[in-house]
Amino acid sequence: MADKKEVQDLYDKISSDFSERRNYPWPEVVDYIENSKKGKNAIDLGCGNGRHIPHLSQIYETVIGLDISKAMLCEARYKLEKENLEKQEFELIQGDITYIPFKDEVFDCIINIATFHHLPTTKDRIKALNEMFRVLKEDKEVLFSVWSIEHEYFDGNRKEIRENDFDYNVTWESNGRRLERYYHIFDEKRLKRQLGKSDFEIKSLELSSGNYYVRLHKP
């Protein structure tokens, strides 16, 4: 069982390499953002190298990127400044999605992409959902994604994942180093059950490119 500190250390170690390989925003996320109504505040929880921040900046007045890894945030700043995004348009914060450092009902939009599956315990996952609910305004949404067991990466080892309570370490190879990254893998039933423990309504749930994308609505 990994802990959050190990996830942080891992991303600190692989930040520049990760940033090079995950340079492009995901089309499902861009499509969602581009079809959103203009608003005041948005946050990307688990922003990594900030690949979705320029898209959020087109729609929202203030955009915040939060990540557990300082090294990833430095990558994000370097990349966003290189893309000539004005400093006024984004803020970067080091934080933990189970302890979101914002007041209640600040955000018009939250995106939480490929982050939630790094939380190692059910307790942490419930805490993160409750925190997202707290900082979101009423009648607004979270766009949420996690890796699905249906992803082609898991061809041949689904049985092993199921037997190991859906906990799985993915190896990240870079410059001859092999580093393990912890994931909690979801199938649709388990994801719905997990999300059902929060106060959110599931507005839509889709499987696309091996990821589940969920729109979570705060009533």
Partner: peptide, 8 residues
């Protein structure tokens, strides 16, 4: 360096 650390 301009980045607040708000980890618990």
């Amino acid at each position: 360096d301009g980045i607040p650390n708000l980890l618990p």
